[in-house]
Amino acid sequence: MTTIHVLADSGQDLVKSHDSFPAEEDSEPPADELENHLRTLEVDEATIDYDRLDEAIEASMTVFDLGRRRQRTAMDSNLAPIVHQCIDVPPRVAAVPGMWHYLTLLRYPDFITSRWSQDDDLQEKFLGTQKDLYSNHLARLWWGAHLTYDEEEDHYLATHRLFNKQRLVNYVLDSSFRRYRPAAIAFAEELWDESGKNITSIAKRFNNSLSTTQLESRSKDQIRDQLGKIRNYVENTN
């Protein structure tokens, strides 16, 4: 039995109506106040390894140069599998937005701020929900890993590849086909070395084709095969 902390909706309101955080530079979440808006969930078969997670996040922030875009992407690629491993909870729990709000606001606020300081919408990296996997930063890393982890071979190769390409991860986590794991993995495996521009048109064409093709009836290999054909067409017509 593990106790999972969850920030209540009222805590979210508090952040949304906060005067300085996160809008002002070097501002911090109102931790003391937020503590009053915590709930707990008791979950069987769940563990959160904070020691390892703390260590990994701390190390990442020193190893990677967060001022450079490529480095930030590389950090995500490196951290996503670790986040997924350390936060070992069933999807039912990972789908509770408040769990991620607690982690970003009360556990790792500095990390989130550093990772996204260049971004316009820092607030959604702290808040944000599952409906929009692009938003909450830790949820994004966890779910991205969850959807691309190779269960049979027990490795995160596709996860690394997915996060290593900003355009790819954005597009995949923004599409509804991401929920079909073979599709998410096929994208990472097939398009990891494609140019950003091509990724966009390939993914768009793939999405169009799903108006007639039933995604769930396709295997990962069939999807890769199809992506290959789209890639050829896109590369040839350009």
Binding site: P91, A94, A95, K131, H146, L147, R179, Y180, Q214, E216
Partner: peptide, 17 residues
């Protein structure tokens, strides 16, 4: 053809046939 039911759980990011 095959007859299937598509199961889509949006919040837990799960789709299968």
């Amino acid at each position: 053809a095959e007859l299937i039911v598509i199961v889509d759980a949006e919040e837990t990011q799960l789709r299968f046939e």
